[in-house]
């Protein structure tokens, strides 16, 4: 290392000093501490006492843990594909460069600015079984369908029924796809024009172009957005927590049949309501591993399919 290099290293480290400090204290230490606490019996008020693998052993037989994991996975596997479809479709439509595009874009983006707590409060009202807007909108549709096909579909009491509560939450989350739409739109606008023109000469229609040009070219963006959606969906906390009124509602903190009990909620409950911080850490680490595993899986799957310009 030359003197010059050494000096650069020193200055570089100086600049990222605040980050290093934060990194060690707010990322590295917590993960290590979490590992240690997960092997302890630890409540807020007492010192952590080492108990070995017992927390993990208990986890295996804890139905609520499995339920929360199941709920989280169901929620994520509903939200991620649906979110992709909705946001990509919207981005494709916006990419037509029509009159009023800016207004449309702003309107679609607006909901993703709404604070989580407000979002939950608004959607608790939207999804009310008796007077909510959602049911007001779908009940004529339901009557029509029932008369037509002869089914007997009644608009549900969304947040009071196990299956519908989760769907309601997905609906509320879909309202906030604006972020993803904007990112997709930026990706779409980077697709080289000449590719389309070449395809048009070959007589390709819109679907062909989307399937064979657009999607491959924006695949890195899709990958990025999906990973972000994955991390977000696995941490979902505020909206279901507030929707269930912090456990003050008649259904308790997990909602009807605990269908809104997510991993984050369960961690929070164990840490701050049930005085089981060690156990909470163990669940947290499992969550971490699950997210890590799924991300790696996604990376592996997409390795052959994501197209990077220049490769």
């Amino acid at each position: 290392m030359t003197a010059m290099e050494g000096k650069r290293l020193r200055i570089g480290l100086l600049f990222i000093g605040p980050w290093i400090f934060g990194f060690l204290l707010l990322s590295v230490y917590p993960v290590v501490a979490s590992l240690y606490f997960s092997l302890c019996d630890y409540s807020v008020l007492s010192r952590p006492v080492f108990i070995g693998w017992q927390n993990y052993g208990d986890l295996v037989f804890d139905e609520l843990f499995w339920k929360s994991l199941y709920n989280t996975i169901v929620y994520a596997s509903l939200l991620i594909p649906l979110g992709f479809l909705v946001s990509f479709a919207l981005a494709l439509m916006l990419n037509f460069d029509l009159r009023g595009k800016g207004v449309f874009r702003a309107v679609i983006f607006l909901p993703s600015l709404v604070p989580m707590v407000c979002l939950a409060v608004i959607w608790r009202w939207m999804l009310n079984g008796e007077f909510g807007l959602v049911n007001t909108l779908i009940s004529p549709l339901a009557t029509f369908l029932n008369a037509w096909i002869g089914t007997d579909f009644q608009p549900p009491s969304w947040l009071q029924e196990a299956v519908y509560a989760k769907l309601g939450l997905v609906l509320a989350s879909l309202w906030c796809v604006g972020n993803a739409v904007v990112i997709y739109l930026a990706g779409l606008q980077d697709v080289p024009r000449h590719l389309y023109e070449a395809a048009e000469i070959d007589g390709a229609n819109f679907w062909h172009k989307t399937r064979h040009i657009t999607i491959p070219v924006v695949s890195p963006v899709i990958y990025f957005n999906s990973i972000m959606a994955l991390i977000g969906a696995f941490q979902v906390f505020a909206v279901p927590y507030v929707m269930m009124r912090g456990g003050n509602g008649p259904d308790g903190i997990g909602g009807p049949d605990r269908s809104l009990l997510f991993i984050s909620t369960y961690i929070y409950q164990n840490a701050f309501d049930y005085w089981n911080m060690g156990y909470a850490c163990a669940i947290g680490l499992i969550l971490f591993l699950v997210i890590l595993g799924l991300t790696l899986l996604a990376t592996k799957i997409s390795a052959n399919r994501v197209y990077y310009a220049g490769s």
Binding site: P250, D257, Y274
Partner: peptide, 23 residues
């Protein structure tokens, strides 16, 4: 009992489940 908070939450959820006929 020291576990009453958990116990209570659990019983509420259980009552909720039977009232939905989910169990």
């Amino acid at each position: 009992m020291a576990t009453w908070a958990e116990y209570r939450d659990d019983l509420i959820a259980a009552a909720n489940r039977v009232s939905l006929l989910e169990g």
